[in-house]
Amino acid sequence: MNSRIIIVNIIRWFLLLFVQIFLLKNMGFYDLSTPFIYVLFLLLLPFGIPNILLYLLAFGTGLTLDAFYDTMGVHATACVVLAFVRISFISISLNRDAIDDPEPSLSYMGFQWFSLYALLCVLAHHVVLFFLETFRLTEIGYTLMRCGLSCIFTLLIILLVEFIFYRRTSR
């Protein structure tokens, strides 16, 4: 069971990064809306993962993305922020002792919880990402617009993917 989770996550990591780097990197609507689907990997890490491991994975994933995007440290920082939001949100919204689901996915947690969870994490990630990329406050309107539109795009794809791999479970 444990090794299965690890293997699934490794496969997911490669798959998502592959799609992100080779497909979605070339996509975008007028430079305004760019999807960052790879954050789904961080969202779907199992509940029981230690914080330090989660941060390390987030940082490593971000650095890998940075290597391909030539933005050293930007994605890594954004992913760390996402990890922090993920930990905070889970600890606030769920009772730590009552968690018996393996991972926070749509199949286990239901649409309402998962969509809010994904929205908050993706929003935090995108805000940090775009502001670090722009790195000035003079174009704040444009940056915020990019944040919002990209957020919508990313969320849409994440929910689509989740519905495709939806497994009805007996809750």
Binding site: N51, I52, Y55, A58, F59, G62, T71, M72, G73, V74, A76, T77, A78, V80, V81, A83, F84, I87, S88, S91, L132, F135, R136
Partner: peptide
């Protein structure tokens, strides 16, 4: 620990950004 780890990793990330990206550094 989540918060402190966040601070640590966030600092590393931002310093990496500033160190390696000419534009951000110049700003």
């Amino acid at each position: 620990n989540a918060f402190f780890l966040f601070i640590i990793f966030f600092t590393i990330g931002v310093s990496l950004t500033l160190k390696n990206n000419a534009y951000q550094r110049s700003v």
